[in-house]
Design a protein around this nucleic acid. Sequence first.
DNA 1: ACTAATAATAGTAACCATTACTATTTAAAT
DNA 2: ATTTAAATAGTAATGGTTACTATTATTAGT
Lengths: 120, 120
Amino acid sequence: MRFSKQRELIKNIVQGTNSHPTAYWIFNKAKKKISNISLGTVYRNLNKLNKDGIIDIFYDNNIARYDWNTVSHDHLKCNKCGKIIDVKMHTKELQKEVWKQYKFEADNFEITVSGICNNH
Amino acid sequence: MRFSKQRELIKNIVQGTNSHPTAYWIFNKAKKKISNISLGTVYRNLNKLNKDGIIDIFYDNNIARYDWNTVSHDHLKCNKCGKIIDVKMHTKELQKEVWKQYKFEADNFEITVSGICNNH
DNA sequence: ACTAATAATAGTAACCATTACTATTTAAAT
DNA sequence: ATTTAAATAGTAATGGTTACTATTATTAGT
Ligand SMILES: [Mn+2]
Ligand SMILES: [Mn+2]
Ligand SMILES: [Zn+2]
Ligand SMILES: [Zn+2]
């Protein structure tokens, strides 16, 4: 993969926020630095960065959000302010439970907790 | 809400499968009984049934799936055969954990476990 | 430095799941 | 039976994402 300033910018934008941004948010941020950058370029590079393990993608209902944090973790989503907070849940117990009851070999847990955050 | 044979059919289709079908799958099934049923009618009624608490909606990556099972539960998704299995995870521990560590008042856990099911 | 090869881009069209619109049909209350 | 408005079929529009294509930019070899 060869260098491009567009990809470098997109990577830095994702790595510079904890807000789990959407592609469109990243696109608007990027336009401030490269005014004619294309939305297609944003999507293409987000997917490329994800395939190379540089960033993570997850879905919030039906839209993609991008995450600089590539180590397996979970999210708390506040119903009042929309904030998405990183957490690491202990899933060892759940893994055992699933194996015991269903003979299901779990290799990934995706947990989204909705509720009310500590700002309210 | 007044009766319609379309809505009745859609409800029965969702309640007659454990497969967590998509709207399009339901649409095709419905066409066998009402050949000129419209995809818009399927979506409209699925949303209406959901609002009335008759069925559940959840998102599998970026597409909606419908579920007859309206009591809070979780899903095991097999990476080999795609099957989605209903389970009830114990989230009381997680709830405590989230409150202790983040002062986050959890009211719903959405857990999707991916792995390999007992058919393989 | 110059050239050649080709990866990456901007701009635009296409795609797919879902929702919105509208004229017509239908359930059901009177 | 008549009336009223909810529901429908058919179609257009929307929003997020991917695909296409002519042009531009990076990089390896000379
Ligand atoms: Mn995160
Ligand atoms: Mn289910
Ligand atoms: Zn909040
Ligand atoms: Zn399986």
